[in-house]
């Protein structure tokens, strides 16, 4: 997207001076995060290798190495929880990103309709999970609106067990999460789309490009950097979000909708086994860390290469 740099001798000193100043721009963030965000991480990692129960939270933590991880793996359900998590993240990310981009393209042009729908989307996105979760729990219930409509239309013979069949429940909860993510992704995609110079579209139109070609050859390349970061943010969201599961199914039936973040929450704050819960959280963090490495590398490759 940008022209390559041609470092001349005179520019070099300016370049290095500039670079140093630009690095200084990052300093406040580093200081602030070091003060308030690093300590919790250290504590989380320490807890994950210690035996921390309700009785010794405030006092000495006994180092137990990988025992918490082993205890997690020893539970028969843990493999299923990891599979649930990956499925959940895959659904939320795919639908959240494609849906977000589609909505952003649909609403990119200013107008009363776009404004109304965008306002509606942001309004709904900003509602607390307990509200959105409760709404969907009702809409998806046996007597709920969706089943009623489907029954009235004759599309189904009996109510779909959206939230209490172990094969469907995870899908339902993931879809609702994707539904919540779409407004956010759409808003960010839209900000990036409306930053595309209007001349680009005008030139394309003069060349007789169709709307679809415009999207394919102008919009999508222009939002690539944004979509990369949204991809990462959505995956991370999928890996740490549990509010909807908490409200809609509480991980059930049985453990059919239990994902890693929900399991970690339950272990730490319902069973008060802080060591075990931290270990679960660390496992999720490490799974995402792999993604973080891939992201930062691909960012570098894309931007330098």
């Amino acid at each position: 997207m940008r022209g390559g740099r041609t470092p001349g001798t005179a520019r070099l000193s300016y370049e290095s001076r500039k670079r140093r100043t630009q690095l200084l721009f990052v300093a406040p963030a580093v200081v602030f995060l070091a003060a308030f965000a690093v300590f919790p991480i250290i504590q989380l990692f320490r807890m994950s290798v210690s035996d921390v129960r309700v009785s010794n939270l405030g006092s000495d933590w006994q180092f137990v190495g990988l025992e918490n991880v082993v205890r997690n793996l020893g539970q028969g359900a843990f493999g299923g929880v990891v599979v649930n998590t990956l499925l959940f993240v895959a659904i939320v990310t795919t639908i959240g990103l494609i849906g977000g981009l589609a909505v952003a393209i649909l609403l990119a042009k200013s107008g009363r309709w776009s404004a109304t729908i965008l306002a509606l989307l942001v309004f709904v996105w900003a509602l607390p999970p307990v509200v959105n979760g409760s709404v969907w729990k009702f809409l998806l219930g046996t007597q709920g609106l969706i089943n009623s409509v489907l029954l009235d239309l004759g599309l189904i013979d009996s109510a779909v067990p959206f939230l209490f069949d172990d094969r469907i429940a995870l899908l339902s909860v993931a879809m609702v999460n994707a539904w919540v993510v779409i407004p956010f992704n759409a808003l960010v995609f839209r900000a990036s789309i409306i930053s595309i110079p209007a001349e680009a579209f005008e030139a394309a139109r003069v060349d007789g490009a169709s709307r679809w070609q415009e999207i394919r050859f102008i919009t999508i390349p222009a939002v690539r950097p944004t979509s990369l970061v949204l991809f990462v943010l959505t995956v991370v969201y999928g890996f740490r979000s549990f509010d909807f599961i908490y409200v809609m199914t509480f991980g059930g039936p049985g453990t059919a909708t239990t994902t890693l973040p929900f399991l970690g929450y339950v272990q730490a704050f319902i069973r008060f086994d802080f060591g075990l819960g931290s270990a679960t959280a660390v496992i999720a963090v490490l799974m995402v860390a792999v993604l973080a490495v891939i992201y930062s590398r691909s960012v570098r490759r894309e931007e330098i290469g």
Partner: peptide, 12 residues
């Protein structure tokens, strides 16, 4: 930053 973003809020 991604790892920070990944921190469960409850753990903080």
């Amino acid at each position: 930053l991604i790892v920070l973003q990944m921190m469960p809020q409850t753990a903080n």
